[in-house]
Amino acid sequence: MKVAIVGAGKGGTAILKSLARLDEVHVSVIIDTNVNASGIKLAKKLNVDTSTSIEDINPVDTDMIIEATGIENVANTLHDKYGDDCKIIDSQGAFLIMTLVERDIETLEKLDAQMSAINETSLVVQNRLEEIATSVEDIHNVSEMLVNTTEASNKYIEESDKIVQYVNKIAQQIKILGLNANIEAARAGEYGKGFSVVASEIQKLANESENFAKEINDILVKLSTEIEKINNEIDNLKKLSQVQLDASNSVSAAVEKLKEETDN
């Protein structure tokens, strides 16, 4: 349908703005004696023809004329000149259209504002989700580093345990050596007193080495227990990180879907 609008004031502008959204309707021209009228300016932006005279209406190329001035003389002139060729909607019908159009435009503007707010919110949420994803990745890297550290610590504990076992063997050998020295000192009688003192010190050193090795072993056992606890916490941290990452991905997908729906 091809439409001509006479009057580019508030009503004509609203009608033009609404009709321009319809693919089924083509506004062929908008007419007003005021070249600075808002409807004339809008028509130029929309590449719609403009004129200052109703004489420029082509009845062959026009199905309907909307009279939006509310001026009786203009309405009469349109009926006299084009009434037989075109459907003419007078100012009362134009007012009804204008009222509906204004409500339509107001609703669309509210929807546009809401869509804009949704898009802005979606962008903020998306950025925060990206930050969360990055932090989860950092946590994962820290977890991997802790795993590597605990594995290295376990190896060191194993090596230390070997050393402690070796010290225990030496201590046992020293104790046997001290015991034999005491026996030989007792056989030597008076001449073996000095050697007996040395043997006692050797025996004492063996006992202290054995006790020291036991203390080290106890520490290593406690350290191993603590490392096991760390490993358990790392596993929990990985699980929590995965839950957080899955939740972030779900929210991100929902936001992306919302953006696609608002764009369509």
Rank of each mutant, 00 (worst) to 15 (best):
G189I: 03
A4R: 03
D112C: 07
K81Y: 05
G189E: 02
E226D: 11
Q165T: 06
E120H: 13
L108T: 08
I30W: 00
Q173F: 05
E55F: 04
A37L: 03
R21A: 15
L108W: 09
L78R: 00
N180H: 06
N180C: 09
E120V: 11
L108P: 01
L205D: 14
F95H: 05
D138M: 13
V29I: 15
T262V: 15
M115W: 07
S241H: 04
E159Y: 04
N148R: 13
M1E: 03
I132Y: 07
V3M: 00
P59D: 06
R128F: 08
N148I: 07
S241C: 07
L108M: 13
L123T: 15
N264E: 10
E55G: 08
I89N: 00
Q165V: 05
I216T: 13
T13V: 01
Y166E: 15
D235W: 02
D61E: 12
Y191I: 14
N154Q: 11
I227V: 11
K87E: 12
I163T: 05
E260R: 11
I202P: 02
D218E: 14
I57C: 06
I234F: 02
I15L: 08
Y156I: 10
N264V: 07
S122F: 01
I66F: 01
N148H: 10
E159N: 09
V251F: 08
E215L: 08
R128W: 06
V147Q: 15
K169Q: 10
D63Y: 06
A254K: 14
V243D: 13
E67N: 01
F212P: 02
K238Y: 07
L100N: 11
Q126D: 14
A75Q: 10
A253F: 02
D235T: 15
V198I: 15
Q165I: 03
N232G: 13
F195R: 10
V48R: 00
N119Y: 03
A247N: 09
L46G: 00
E72C: 01
G83S: 05
E106M: 05
I66P: 03
K229F: 05
K17N: 07
V101P: 03
L96R: 06
D63S: 08
N249A: 09
I157Y: 02
E159L: 08
C86Q: 04
E130K: 15
F212C: 08
G11N: 11
D90F: 00
L78Y: 01
L42N: 02
K204E: 13
D218H: 03
T121I: 09
T99P: 04
